[in-house]
């Protein structure tokens, strides 16, 4: 069993899902409660990774991370090395790739909050931030869990982007999905099967958690 690849994938997924939650909370809040009329454009932009093949993202990332772009040179200056073939590079790629999986559950959760409660909160003198913290967030708990778990699971299963910008380095960029691919290529079907089965079970568990939370299976009242 390729434990190193599994641990790397788990680490990547953990880092990415936590970072994504931090990015997605304000982004989703702005998408739902903002006032700019062109928000739909940003919404479409966020959803792009859902429909684009990973090769598109991987290709642009590879070019972008190279030394010929300003971004590539900036990374060179900041980290002292390029982003391609590094763990940081995978994090950047995964942030983009899994973004819709974190933003969309939050957006639908925020949309579901009763506006009357927000008005009540404002009338009682709470600021926008306080309303967000004390009214919107608690009411969006299941959306939060969904965002966290889905972005975690999606990053865990990422393949195309990692293949294109990773460089297959053991312990650094050889994630579970790449290790499975390598095993299958080398005709080591037994090893591929072990990892693939494990990934399948992990993903199933993650999705079960999401659906359980959304159905309030663990809620003491009103199981639906």
């Amino acid at each position: 069993m390729n434990l190193q690849a599994l641990l790397l994938s788990l680490r990547l997924a953990a880092v990415v899902s936590v970072l994504l939650l931090g990015i997605s909370l304000p982004l989703a809040a702005w998408l739902v409660f903002g006032r700019w009329r062109g928000r739909f454009l940003l919404e479409a932009l966020v959803a792009l990774p859902l429909v684009l093949p990973p090769t598109v993202l991987g290709f642009y990332l590879l070019v972008l991370m190279g030394p010929r772009t300003p971004f590539g040179r900036l990374c060179q200056a900041l980290f002292g090395h390029g982003l391609a073939f590094t763990f940081e590079g995978l994090v950047v790629g995964s942030l983009l790739y899994s973004l819709p999986f974190a933003v969309q559950p939050l957006v639908s959760a925020f949309r579901g909050v009763d506006r009357a409660l927000l008005d009540a909160s404002f009338v009682l003198g709470a600021s926008r931030l306080r309303t967000f913290r004390r009214v919107i967030l608690p009411l969006s708990f299941s959306g939060l869990v969904t965002a966290l778990v889905l972005s975690f699971a999606h990053t865990l299963g990422e393949f195309g982007v990692v293949l294109m910008v990773g460089g297959n380095l053991p312990g650094i960029t050889r994630t579970v999905s790449i290790a499975i691919y390598d095993s299958a290529q080398a005709l080591d079907y037994a090893a591929a099967n072990r990892l693939a089965l494990l990934l399948l079970l992990l993903s199933f568990t993650a999705l079960s958690v999401v659906y359980a939370v959304n159905r309030r299976v663990w809620s003491p009242w009103s199981p639906r």
Binding site: V63, G72, G82, A84
Partner: peptide, 20 residues
């Protein structure tokens, strides 16, 4: 220093793009 391309073309792509 080694990075691994999926095939020889991808290895070429890694250097050609300046990432390696």
């Amino acid at each position: 220093k080694l990075v691994y391309g999926e095939n020889i073309s991808q290895a070429a792509q890694f250097v050609e793009s300046g990432n390696a």
